[in-house]
Computed example of a mutant assay.
Amino acid sequence: MYRRRFIAGLAVTAVGSTGCLGGNSSEDVPDPIALSGEKFDDQGGMAIGDHGGPNGQVFYAENSPEGHENPAWFHTLVFGLFPYHFDRLDRGWEAEAVYVTDYSKVDLPSSSDGNPRLPAPTAADTFADATEVTYVAESEAVGGMGPALPPFSEESEAEDFAERYGGRTIGFEGITSTLIEELKRNAPGGMGMNGMNMSDG
């Protein structure tokens, strides 16, 4: 069972810091849900699970996404979850839990061209606490929108992935708005409205 922690506090560039909110216990933190069943990204409106790459979901304490109850859900981290979450933090929203695809629990396809296309699992048990995984930034791996930010609950697997496909490993605290903007700028095919890569590259 993954350890659950609340996301609390704000930083100018960071997503947040870990810790309990209001003295609540870990039993109060919601578990991740399955993102199957024609769910559409709350940031860009694209179907989740169809485009490859890590998915994500965020439960907010006193707010909810437009059109449905918590969590907010995303088919990409670079163009979906993190831009949306940075914006909500700026608005004063408080997150109870943030979950991302855990590639330590997913079979990754082999790639002969050095440019692996990551799967996009949607089952609840394929998600892990976003604050406790290791991410690989700036690798050759791609998701449905281009650059991916694959997370791994096993740090050694993240390091092996980076060694094989390039990039560098970072923790949750290293994911800043500056990093996300850099990854978006490096997306193939250019970007459209709200930073979305309209080529779906």
Rank of each mutant, 00 (worst) to 15 (best):
V133K: 05
G174I: 04
A61P: 00
A11S: 15
M198K: 12
G22M: 02
A130M: 04
Y99F: 13
N55F: 00
E62I: 00
F74T: 09
G16Q: 03
D31S: 13
A11Y: 08
H85W: 04
P150V: 08
A8P: 00
E154I: 15
Y103D: 02
K39S: 01
V29H: 10
P71L: 07
V136I: 12
G174M: 07
N70Y: 08
N24E: 14
G174W: 03
M1Y: 05
G53M: 07
A128F: 07
S110W: 01
G53R: 05
I48N: 04
A162I: 06
D50L: 15
D31M: 10
H85A: 11
G22C: 10
T134R: 07
E132Q: 14
F82N: 04
A137D: 02
F40P: 06
G23Q: 06
G144F: 04
E154M: 09
T126R: 14
P116G: 10
W73A: 07
F79V: 05
G143T: 03
A72N: 03
S26H: 13
M145F: 11
Y135F: 14
G146T: 11
E181T: 08
Y60T: 05
M193D: 14
A141D: 07
F6L: 00
S177T: 14
T76M: 00
K39M: 14
Y165V: 05
P71W: 10
D125C: 02
P188Q: 10
F74S: 04
V78G: 06
P109G: 04
T176Y: 10
G195V: 11
G192K: 13
E181Y: 00
E163W: 00
G80F: 06
G37N: 14
G114W: 08
E173Y: 05
G166R: 09
E132P: 00
G190P: 07
E159Y: 02
S64I: 06
A34Q: 09
G189I: 12
R88W: 12
T76Q: 09
M1L: 10
L118N: 08
F79M: 01
G146M: 05
Y2P: 13
K184T: 11
N186D: 15
A47S: 12
E181F: 00
Y60G: 01
A95T: 07
F172A: 04
C20G: 08
N63L: 00
G19K: 03
P83L: 05
A120E: 11
V98E: 13
V29I: 15
G166K: 07
A137P: 02
V136L: 09
G16E: 03
A14S: 14
A187T: 15
L183G: 03
F86Y: 12
G174Y: 04
V58A: 15
R185K: 12
W73Y: 08
M198T: 14
F40M: 01
G144P: 05
I170L: 15
E182W: 06
D125A: 10
E173G: 11
D50M: 13
I48R: 01
V133T: 11
T76E: 13
P116N: 06
D41G: 14
R5M: 08
F82L: 14
T13I: 02
G146C: 08
I170A: 06
A72E: 02
K39C: 09
N24K: 12
T126W: 00
T13V: 07
I48S: 01
R3F: 03
V133S: 01
Y135H: 06
A187W: 02
P119L: 05
